[in-house]
Design a binder for these strands. Structure first.
Lengths: 189, 189
DNA sequence: AGGGACATGTAATTAGTTACATGATTGT
DNA sequence: ACAATCATGTAACTAATTACATGTCCCT
């Protein structure tokens, strides 16, 4: 699955410009599932337009540059369905935040605390957005996914909040217990 | 942060071969935070070896090809600390599973159910592994991260379990209510 | 006899990020 | 005045995936 399918998916929920698609994929709900920037969206849109999976309507605007509003065609709808039908690839995750915490003993305690606090704030912010968007009538799938996001973010934020201080305390203790050999088997599996 | 830092991080917890590092990053605990395959690990290791951040000890083996066991040098340790010190990039997530569910109305209900069930099983499997590895003495950060993983996976599995049937039911209902206009604003933000 | 685990690597391709390039309008 | 938002696109670069290439041992 690539950015082309991503665009088809966004357009399934309604016509949009490249700018709006990017917004959905880097700030909106979809950004929690699949991120993309201008550099991948605009070329994808051009390709989709070329193969007739979307149509593009140029709209002149007062002052601002012309808008290009894209719409899903029936062929595009079918292509989306076909893409969705094949088994989804395994989730791809890359969390430098979590990876860094793995080595929190190598970081100043204040930095560890700061990162956790920032992350909690980030989750809370995401939760607020999700909660407000829930309720407005949305597709059943979108509702399900939003509910899932809320459940997961809530659990994450709660864990960080309840274990933050314990981690810092443990870190402070082992700090002055001279250096200890880190366990090897702890990470291997 | 790139695969080189990933390797330094894995080696911080103990000497390992490229094969073992890949295992940790594609099946082990770390795979939940940062995935990598042979194609990126072996070249990274070669580069790290060239710049003196790791040392490589070749070990002849009965029958099997020679093992190359890598160890973190003091310079490597410092490089790891330096990398970890800079602010972590935003999490990068790509979940085709979740993206697909967003459009569950376009998929056969049985397929939706199957995917959710598979995902629940996957979470349960991950939970089991995490729980068994917890308890063995590990670095405080690793313990914290594992606990976080457990909390999040548990919430995710529970949500899927408790909402699975509701989704399928809703899907079946709207199916024969003719086609409805999906709401546009539901995804934009 | 066949598959999987152990073990290392390279080369080609693909995909995606980042930076560049432009420019008006609106709000602070 | 300055930053942010709206708006579109390209080019160069980086990074990572995939496929290829090889070979033994052990279990079923």
């Amino acid at each position: 699955m690539d950015v082309k399918t991503l665009c088809l998916g966004v357009l399934f929920f309604g016509d949009a410009t490249g700018y709006e698609i990017r917004k959905a994929c880097s700030e909106g709900m979809i950004s929690h599932l699949y991120e993309a920037g201008y550099g991948s969206i605009y070329p994808a849109l051009a390709q989709l337009s070329g193969t007739g999976l979307v149509t593009c309507t140029e709209m002149a605007q007062d002052g601002r540059p012309d808008k290009k509003v894209y719409s899903l065609t029936e062929a595009g709808r079918q292509a989306l369905i076909e893409s969705l039908r094949e088994p989804p690839a395994h989730d791809r995750i890359r969390s430098e935040f979590m990876f860094g915490l793995l080595f929190s003993q190598l970081l100043p305690n204040a930095e560890v605390g700061k990162r956790i606090d920032e992350r909690i704030a980030w989750y809370r912010d995401g939760l607020e957005r999700m909660r407000t968007c829930l309720g407005h009538d949305m597709a059943p799938g979108a509702q399900f996914v939003t509910g899932y996001g809320i459940a997961v973010y809530e659990a994450a934020a709660n864990y960080l909040e309840t274990h933050r201080d314990t981690l810092i305390r443990t870190l402070s203790q082992s700090e002055d217990t001279v250096e200890e050999q880190p366990a090897r088997e702890a990470v291997g599996r």
